[in-house]
Design a protein around this nucleic acid. Structure first.
Length: 273
DNA sequence: ATATTCCCCTGGAAGC
DNA sequence: TGCTTCCAGGGGAATA
């Protein structure tokens, strides 16, 4: 899916465009993996959006009164805000009518994502749906110490480990490969062989690549779109992801592609050890 | 407990 | 051209 930089880009745009707007109705247009919850979504009528925020790769649209919408973009999800008279698209799944005649439209061809009405706990605690998620990689607390502490008895390859949303959130297939390349670390390395120094470098490079991608509006490889169709620009700066067989930008060795836990991993066999 | 595989679904690209 | 096969950035459940 869209990973942290892409989701954060969407969240910032939604926060800018939706805060203060009043929800006039939620319409379910097509089936989604997670049901929208029509009973609860009806209660959103008349409530203004207070803020839009991100946790991991989830989007929380908070309305007044402790209600809101929880969304995940899955692989192909995207949002548009359009006047009602602009025709909807084939794969629009949810439409949120807004004051002023606009509609927030959630489009998702592959239906791996969802938009769901939720109750937001008043005591500041996490949504039930978001419990068990790992640490935010751009937070101060993310670093070598906590990564190493989470290794336990695991021997899993380091690439799989940093994509585990229970350990650290927001790192998906693209940025896992990119961060490992920047760290000079072989993605197949078992986590119990990684030294404290190496964890430190990896944590720094994860932060760095996510920040740079965010600054560039994320990566549009295939399906990702920002709000109202904007494309990211970071795909042009990727060092290894999607470059199998092409020359490493540092040493010229052909970029290798392997499969780990059912997903493709890209790395430079010379630069990464 | 840990690690991999499968599966949800659709569309686009590549292969024949 | 047209049909088939493969592949895709997520995540959760099922399986060894």
């Amino acid at each position: 899916m869209p990973e942290l930089p892409e989701v954060e880009t969407v969240v910032r745009a939604l926060n800018r465009k939706l805060t203060g707007r009043v929800v006039r109705g939620v319409r379910v247009l097509g089936k989604t993996r997670v049901p929208c919850g029509t009973g609860l979504s009806r209660k959103l009528c008349g409530l203004p959006v207070v803020a839009v925020r991100r946790r991991a790769k989830y989007i929380v649209i908070e309305c007044a009164g402790g209600l809101g919408l929880l969304a995940h973009l899955g692989m192909t999800g995207s949002f548009r805000i359009e006047p009602m008279d602009v025709p909807r698209r084939r794969h629009d799944r949810i439409a949120v009518r807004l004051d002023g005649g606009d509609e927030l439209r959630y489009e998702d061809a592959r239906r791996f994502g969802f938009v769901k009405a939720v109750v937001i706990p008043g005591d500041g605690s996490e949504l039930a749906e978001l419990r068990g998620l790992g640490i935010e990689p751009l937070s101060r607390a993310f670093g070598a110490k906590m990564l190493q502490a989470r290794v336990g008895r695991r021997k899993t390859p380091v690439k799989t480990f940093i994509m585990d949303q229970g350990i650290v959130v927001g790192v998906g297939n693209i940025y896992a490969s990119e961060a490992l390349f920047a760290s000079g670390m072989d993605p197949r390395r078992p986590v119990d062989s990684v030294t404290p120094d190496e964890w430190g470098r990896l944590a720094r490079e994860i932060k760095k690549v996510l920040r740079r991608a965010l600054k560039n509006g994320g990566s549009t490889i295939r399906d990702y779109r920002g709000v109202n169709g904007a494309e990211g620009a970071f795909q042009r700066k990727l060092k290894v992801y999607g470059r199998a067989g092409e020359a490493c930008r540092v040493c010229g060795t052909a970029v290798a592609s392997i499969r780990q836990a059912g997903r493709s991993t890209f790395y430079c066999p010379t630069c990464q050890r």
